[in-house]
């Protein structure tokens, strides 16, 4: 455990330069986008004279040169101050924190679903390779892989919300009903079914293909033959010998694709009006809310680093030959 702690600290130290490069790079990149957050605000207001705009720029700290702005930001960051959000008029940290829980719940459910369903379907397909279950699952996988998530989301809404009226078409919870306890949990779950489906199907397809291929490969290896030869039951062979080894590429992929999923959630959150980080990021780009955007990028980068760290630890757990260091 102590070793893991030390490892975590070392990883964190290693990631500081990376984070810095990401933040400074993004800051400079955004300077290339024409217009600032005051322009965005004026666009929303539909008018405003030059004096008003100048005063607003002063309020938002945009009246100084770019290096000074960047310097100020980095100095603030040293004291873990992410600054004020221009859109929300609140500290960026609290804005992100409000949205983070929604995205965390949404993404972990989507990831868990994609992973577990992909795993099961992959195993089933591999066991009956070239049989009808394999053909069916592989075809479905291709279809899922080919459907863009925003379109799938809209079609799910049309079918399940508009036509059948089974599930709500958007939002995170029923508004103003003051639900608590189990009723609240169920209400949120009802709202999340469609978004999770739209986000996860494409990943499900990837995982199932990966799992199938990896299972097929491991099943031909010598130690599996040995296991069978010593008379183990088929189920035991699959669980103890094949599955554990076949899982390694899957786990690698989860780590790698976590960031892709974070990107995909922008679209799905917009379609389903979920108040998550993805939509916040989109909104901050459109409104040129630099502080909020940098804050989101920072948090996302940390998330990706953490997830990949966990993946490294999982490797060691799955395959004792690999040592996390």
């Amino acid at each position: 455990m102590k070793r893991v702690g030390a490892l975590a600290l070392r990883r964190l130290a290693q990631s500081v330069p990376v984070l810095l490069i990401i933040l400074v790079g993004l800051f400079l990149l955004l300077q290339l986008a024409p217009g600032d957050t005051v322009d965005a605000l004026l666009a929303q207001m539909g008018g405003g004279d030059a004096a008003v705009a100048a005063r607003l720029r002063q309020d938002y700290g945009l009246d100084v040169s770019v290096p000074v702005q960047l310097g100020r930001y980095l100095v603030r960051l040293l004291s873990f101050d992410l600054g004020m959000s221009a859109i929300y008029g609140k500290p960026v940290a609290s804005v992100i924190f409000e949205r983070l829980s929604v995205t965390a719940l949404f993404m972990s459910c989507a990831l868990a679903f994609a992973f577990s369903a992909g795993l099961v379907l992959g195993v089933v397909a591999a066991r009956r390779v070239n049989g009808w279950p394999d053909t069916l699952i592989s075809t479905l996988g291709l279809v899922f892989y080919a459907i863009p998530s925003f379109w799938l989301g809209l079609m799910l809404i049309v079918l399940f919300s508009v036509k059948l009226a089974w599930l709500p078409p958007g939002g995170f919870e029923s508004i103003g009903e003051g639900l608590t306890g189990l009723a609240h949990v169920l209400d949120v779950a009802r709202h999340l079914v469609l978004p999770i489906l739209s986000l996860s199907l494409i990943f499900l397809a990837i995982y199932l293909r990966l799992m199938r291929a990896s299972m097929l490969e491991v099943m031909t290896l010598d130690f599996v033959r040995t296991a069978r030869a010593k008379g183990l039951s088929e189920g035991h062979v699959l669980r103890r010998h094949v599955l554990r080894n076949a899982l390694l590429p899957m786990v690698t992929f989860v780590g790698l694709q976590f960031s892709t999923m974070l990107g995909g959630s922008v679209v799905v959150e917009s379609v389903f009006s979920l108040p998550g980080l993805g939509r916040l990021a989109f909104e901050s780009v459109v409104q040129r809310d630099l502080n909020t955007l940098l804050g989101i990028v920072l948090v996302s980068a940390v998330l990706v680093i953490v997830v990949n760290f966990i993946v490294d630890l999982l490797y060691a757990k799955l395959d004792p030959r690999i040592v996390a260091r």
């Binding site: 919300s161 709500p168 009006s273």
Partner: peptide, 10 residues
């Protein structure tokens, strides 16, 4: 999504 919300009665 907005027209879906209207059509579903939300």
């Amino acid at each position: 999504a907005a027209s879906a919300a209207l059509e579903s009665g939300q």
